[in-house]
């Protein structure tokens, strides 16, 4: 039997969950209840995403969701195999997918950041 391992990954998923509660709360509040932002228009979205604070919330939301979800997916996959080589391959693969999706998400925000 192996020694301790996988502790950081599991802990970070919990931390990500707690972080999600916060940023998702902000996201939902701003989108649905915060004055003029609650009305969905291109001008409104542009204005909202022009604010540094909201960009930070959006990027954090994206990063936390991706980590939490993909670690959960890895956890399901590991229910079927704990063979070291397979676990390594899946972990690397999921990191690549996660980073690629994170990059795409941030790229989508760039036009708004640049105004």
């Amino acid at each position: 039997m192996n020694g301790a391992g996988g502790i950081w990954g599991w802990l970070l998923q919990r931390v990500a969950a707690a972080g999600l509660v916060v940023v998702l709360g902000i996201h939902l509040y701003v989108l649905h209840f915060a004055g003029e932002h609650a009305v969905l228009t291109k001008a409104g979205v542009s204005e909202r995403l022009g604010e540094v604070g909201y960009i930070i919330v959006d990027v954090a939301l994206l990063g936390l969701v991706l980590y939490h979800a993909l670690y959960g997916l890895r956890s399901v996959i590991l229910d079927y195999t704990t063979r070291e080589s397979a676990v390594r391959a899946w972990t690397v693969g999921l990191w690549v997918v996660g980073l690629a999706m994170f990059g795409l998400g941030v790229l989508a925000l760039v036009p708004f950041i640049n105004g």
Partner: peptide
């Protein structure tokens, strides 16, 4: 012994 992928996680 149990704090790993084959154990508690």
């Amino acid at each position: 012994l149990v704090g790993n992928e084959r154990g508690a996680w």
